[in-house]
Amino acid sequence: MNLRWHHFALWALFIVGMFALPQFVSNGTLRTMIFANFLAIFAISWDTLSGRTGYISFGHPFLIGIGAYTTAILTHRFDFPVEISIPIAVIATMVGGLIVLLPALRIKGSYFALVTLAMMELVYQLVQVVRPDLTGGTRGMSGLPTLTRGAANGYYMSVSLMLAIALSMWLIMKTRLGTALSAIGMNEEAVSGSGLSVTKLKMTAFLMSAFIAGLGGAVYIHYLGSIAPRALFDINFVFTIIVAALIGGAGTTIGPIAGAFFLTFLLEYLRPWLPGAERYMVYSGLALLIYMYQPKGMWALMTQATFKSKIRP
């Protein structure tokens, strides 16, 4: 691992800063930050698969949805305690996602993106019509057990989860596994030509991504206390996750977090002026500008400005 003491010092500073925030900001801002934390989790999940290996997923809510619906059904219909339903939901996401998407990892580029998009749409339709007595059909489910009460507690829970995931992924990506996954994104044939099993590596990336998506999805709905298929499987939700990772800096750990916070606050502050879908035009324009100027995202821009040096992945 190429780790330096200042990396840990920066992480410590970041963690202390994030935990100290509730002392300085309003409850309204905290609620916005809770959503930013969850978006960061989903963006890290997306980045683990797509940002690193170049396999662009357009159906990440498919994975988030498996985790969310599994725990929702278990707690709401079968009275499972949350401590048991969430781990089951995570395992279900990894296994279910793998069964469905493993064949898709054999195809590349836009075909993979289309298959993932189709999976999301398929699950969206299925949860509405198959066993609505379990899934709640088009209306979803409400009255689910919640993990916290109050904005501050919700913030501490979400930020703890987000930071634990971010730090773990950062450490994993600093190992040779991270190097191998990034190598797939650069030249898959050369990875295979270096004696590595690309299928095994892609499967690992997918399982890690599914683990984070399942965990994030399950905890998210136990924060909200409800689940609604239309919001979960919304195409805008897909794009928000992808743009958060890209705008922040795909292939990094901090990038998706920065992108998620930037996007969440941008959309929130635009709400009074542009309450409808027009807000998405503004953020699309901004994302396009940043992407054109620095394809490696905001994190690279910030690093460039700070160190005035070339950016390395």
Binding site: T179, A183, M186, N187, G193, R312, P313
Partner: peptide, 8 residues
Amino acid sequence: PRPFSEMS
């Protein structure tokens, strides 16, 4: 040559 372009 097919190097990994963004790696040292």
